[in-house]
């Protein structure tokens, strides 16, 4: 039945049966998905299942690893720290990216090209390289302290602190905020603002009541991407932060690689993965609700 709508050409009506079997649109194209699905099953789903399995079975079957995780105050502090860090990174990125993305939409083609380039270059540059650059900038005799010193401030210890981690992560993750914001904002009809103004709204009111709500899908996509990336960040906090202020990814690394506690590492992994999925589900629900409000 579904195959019929694929048969638009009259030339093939004589060989209907064979054509239908050969035509893309039948069941056969589904086979094309198989190789990717198999690779995914073996090298992605299976490893994740192993992590979950070890959380419940290693060293003994049961919920021991989870009671350990939620029983240690240190672990809960790590979890809170991970959350607050991700939250700060998301908020600062949003505050810096929103005007930037907006400027990209009102700029002339040449300036817009430059602004786009400034986002895309760091986006494409290796995370390891950029984190290394932050190690140099934040070190105690680093550029930032030299500049502050010239104004008679500091020196501040920035490396091995949570402030340093947040500064670095904001810069590393900002492209993920700017790009979705720009994608949504460039689709907003700019004549809406003068229209609102002509009806008597002040510029700030027009912006807040007309433009901002329309840009919300970009805001939520950007915030979600930055937030979940920040939750699972490993390299940057490991190199810029202090081991005593570790984020959850670092603790997982230590449990498995240093202490060989696969079960405990697995339990932390399950918690981190669960939180990430919960954030995504939350956003999906709120977007659907917002969509219903707009449409109905």
């Amino acid at each position: 039945m579904v195959l019929l709508d694929e048969l638009s050409g009259t030339a093939r009506s004589a060989t209907k049966g064979r054509a239908a079997a050969r035509e893309p649109g039948g069941r056969r194209p589904a086979l094309l998905i198989l190789p990717a699905l198999i690779a995914l099953a073996v090298f992605f789903l299976y490893p994740l299942a192993v992590v979950a399995w070890s959380a419940f079975t290693d060293p003994a079957p049961g919920l021991g690893n989870f009671t350990w995780f939620f029983g240690e105050p240190g672990n809960l502090r790590t979890l809170t720290r991970t959350f607050t860090t991700a939250l700060w990174v998301t908020l600062i990125s949003l505050v810096l990216s929103y005007p930037y993305a907006y400027a990209m939409t009102v700029a002339g083609p040449r300036v817009r090209g430059v602004l786009t380039m400034l986002v895309l270059l760091p986006f494409w540059t290796s995370l390891m390289v950029r984190t290394f650059a932050w190690v140099i900038l934040l070190q105690d005799t680093g550029v930032i302290n030299q500049i502050l010193g010239a104004f008679g401030l500091g020196p501040f210890s920035l490396i091995r602190t949570q402030t340093g981690v947040i500064i670095g992560m904001v810069q590393l993750l900002m492209p993920f905020m700017v790009l979705p914001l720009y994608a949504v904002m460039s689709g907003i009809d700019q004549r809406l603002l003068p229209a609102a103004r002509s009806l008597g709204a002040r510029p700030a009111t027009a912006f807040a009541t007309v433009y901002m709500p329309l840009s919300l899908p970009g805001v939520s996509a950007g915030c979600l991407t930055v937030f979940i990336s920040a939750l699972g960040f490993y390299i940057t906090p490991a190199l810029l932060g202090s081991p005593t202020d570790a984020m959850i990814s670092q603790q997982i690394f230590t449990q498995v690689n240093g202490l060989l506690k696969w079960g405990r590492g697995g339990a932390m992994g399950v918690v981190l993965l669960g939180l990430t999925l919960a954030m995504i589900a939350l956003l999906a629900v709120s977007l659907r609700r917002a969509g219903r409000r707009v449409n109905g």
Binding site: L37, P47, V50, I252, G269, L272
Partner: peptide, 24 residues
């Protein structure tokens, strides 16, 4: 479901996948 599964590697935290991959 297949499409969702194929996009999933983008959202799973790196370390979680890393320890699983290591064990496998």
């Amino acid at each position: 479901a297949a499409q969702g599964a194929m996009l999933a590697p983008m959202i799973v935290p790196g370390v979680v996948l890393a320890i699983g991959t290591y064990s496998v």
